[in-house]
């Protein structure tokens, strides 16, 4: 692994021995402003809860958006449970993506948004009831999305992503713009989802969030993977200090 000037050189082993849930190889996306993602390579095992950290423009969101199919990469390969990420129709059942700003049809109700996606996924509507129950959204089922707080919208967004029960979930800054109570609620949800056996990757700027949630931390710096290890290793090392100095 190539370490960048800012961070100490440190070999970061990629766990190759286990059956991988996500395999990323030489993933590259370079924008006109010469930033993005450069030859990124890593594996993710089932059940991991990974925090992806780094400066603004380090490539965190780009990585998640490529995995979610929002951005077409310049090169590289990704497999999710053996499915090539170019096979979008198969991949959408494997990956759920929750963007930083919920992308819901805000004219319409919570129930309408869930129903539309259930129809497209050909999921029985009984699953909607379960989702509304699971995310405490029953009282808001007929409320238009635009009438809800950002925290509630985020809950709907998570619920919608979980409708087809994908094994891998991607969260782009899940608590950005949320107040303390809602942040705690999202932490609780993330832990609950993780406990149910899902694999989660999330981007974050908040050290307490990383410490509370992550079982593994990946640091992206200038488009490259600069650190990949456990939270203990991360907080014991100078990486965190250097990154946010």
């Amino acid at each position: 692994m190539k370490a960048h000037g800012l961070l100490p050189k440190r070999p970061t082993p990629i766990p190759m021995e286990a059956a991988m849930q996500l395999e990323v190889r030489h993933l590259t996306k370079v924008y006109r402003e010469r930033r993005g993602l450069l030859q990124t390579r890593f594996n993710v095992e089932k059940g991991e809860l990974i925090a992806i950290v780094g400066h603004n423009g380090a490539g965190k969101s780009t990585l998640l958006k490529i995995l979610a199919g929002w951005i077409v990469p310049d090169g590289g390969d990704v497999w999710v449970e053996g499915v090539d990420f170019k096979n979008r129709l198969a991949l959408v059942r494997k990956i759920g993506f929750i963007p930083e700003t919920p992308n819901l049809f805000d004219f319409f109700s919570v129930e309408y948004n869930l129903k539309l996606f259930a129809r497209l996924f050909k999921i029985p509507f009984s699953r909607i009831e379960e989702t509304l129950e699971e995310f405490n959204l029953r009282p808001f089922r007929r409320h238009a999305i635009r009438e809800l707080s950002k925290g509630l919208q985020q809950r709907v967004s998570i619920g919608r992503a979980l409708l087809p029960e994908p094994p891998l979930l991607l969260f782009d800054e899940p608590t950005s713009g949320l107040d303390f109570e809602m942040t705690k609620e999202i932490y609780r949800l993330l832990k609950k989802i993780h406990a149910s056996g899902k694999t989660i990757l999330f981007t974050s700027h908040r050290p307490e969030e990383i410490q509370t949630l992550a079982t593994r931390i990946m640091v992206l710096h200038q488009g490259g993977l600069a650190f990949d290890g456990s939270p203990q290793e991360y907080f014991q090392s100078k990486i965190h200090e250097n990154l946010y100095a």
Binding site: G69, W70, R88, L89, V92, R93, T101, L104, D106, A161
Partner: peptide, 14 residues
């Protein structure tokens, strides 16, 4: 602009 289309592209819709 509202990323609604990207949201729909996360479904099995062609």
């Amino acid at each position: 602009e509202k990323k609604l289309l990207l949201g729909l592209l996360q479904t099995p819709m062609r």
